Simulated scan of single mutants.
Amino acid sequence: MPRPGDLPMIVAVTAGLGLLIALSGIWLMWRLRTRSIGAMLAVVVVVAVTATLAGVVAIINKMIIEGATKDFVLSVVAVGGLVGLGVAFVLARRVVGESRRLVEAVRVAPFTAPVGCPPSCRRSRTPWRRRTRGSRPWRAPGASSSPG
């Protein structure tokens, strides 16, 4: 069992491992900066789960746990890490799919800037310019300057 005075050592070991893994993840993200968002999400997932697992495994090895108990704890940690990776990859795949849908929607229906004040402005007694702090609304090219 760890003694009460072991807490600084436990914090230092887990923080040190987490920092090393985070720095390697930052380096890898920099190298993959021109790749897809899916590759970057995969790096984030792997770095987060690896840092957590490394800290837990390091502390288990520092503690005086031997035999079947140590094997059991390491097995539970490994399964938890695999489940975490699986869930994160499913979510990352969903994010990538929605990102692609959004890009395709923008390609199909290009953006046109609104003209005049929005419908919510027409119902309000507060002028739109005062509510937007004096900023001018965007106008489409060739649009009239009178509010709609």
Rank of each mutant, 00 (worst) to 15 (best):
A92F: 05
P110W: 00
S24L: 09
V49A: 09
S124M: 04
T50Y: 06
G134P: 06
E104L: 00
V96R: 03
R33N: 02
S144M: 07
T69C: 09
G5A: 15
I26V: 13
L102E: 08
V76F: 12
M29C: 06
V46K: 09
V45K: 08
S145K: 14
S145A: 15
R139W: 15
G38L: 03
P137W: 11
I21M: 01
T34R: 12
G80N: 13
S144I: 02
M9P: 02
R107D: 04
A88T: 04
R3F: 02
A15S: 13
V43N: 02
A143N: 07
V106P: 00
G55R: 01
I37K: 07
V96Y: 06
V43F: 02
S124A: 13
G25W: 10
V45I: 12
T126D: 11
M29Q: 10
R93T: 10
R33V: 01
A68H: 03
P137R: 14
A12Y: 12
R125T: 13
R125K: 08
F89S: 07
A42P: 04
R136Y: 06
A48F: 06
P137A: 10
W27L: 14
R35V: 02
L17V: 05
A88E: 09
S144N: 11
R93I: 03
A78D: 01
V96P: 02
L19E: 00
V95A: 12
L20E: 01
V95N: 05
A39P: 04
P141N: 11
R100G: 01
P127N: 14
P4R: 01
I10A: 15
R100V: 07
R101Y: 03
L20T: 05
V90E: 12
R129G: 12
S120T: 09
F89T: 07
A92P: 05
W30D: 10
M29R: 10
G5P: 03
A54R: 08
I10P: 02
S36Q: 04
G67E: 13
R122E: 14
L20G: 13
R31C: 07
V115H: 11
V77R: 04
L53K: 10
A88G: 14
C117W: 12
V44L: 14
T14H: 01
S75K: 13
G38C: 03
R123Y: 02
V90M: 05
A78N: 05
S99C: 03
K62C: 03
A15G: 05
T126F: 06
V77F: 08
R133A: 15
R131Q: 13
T14P: 01
S24I: 00
T112W: 11
M9G: 12
L23C: 10
G86D: 06
G38E: 14
G142Q: 06
G5Q: 14
T132W: 15
V49R: 11
F111L: 03
V115D: 15
V79S: 08
E104Y: 00
R139H: 14
W128T: 05
S120I: 01
E104H: 00
V44F: 10
V115F: 04
M63E: 00
T50S: 13
V77L: 05
A42G: 12
R107I: 06
V73Y: 03
V87P: 00
V106F: 01
R101I: 01
V47N: 02
V11W: 04
R94D: 09
S24G: 04
G55L: 01
A22T: 05
L91Q: 11
L91M: 08
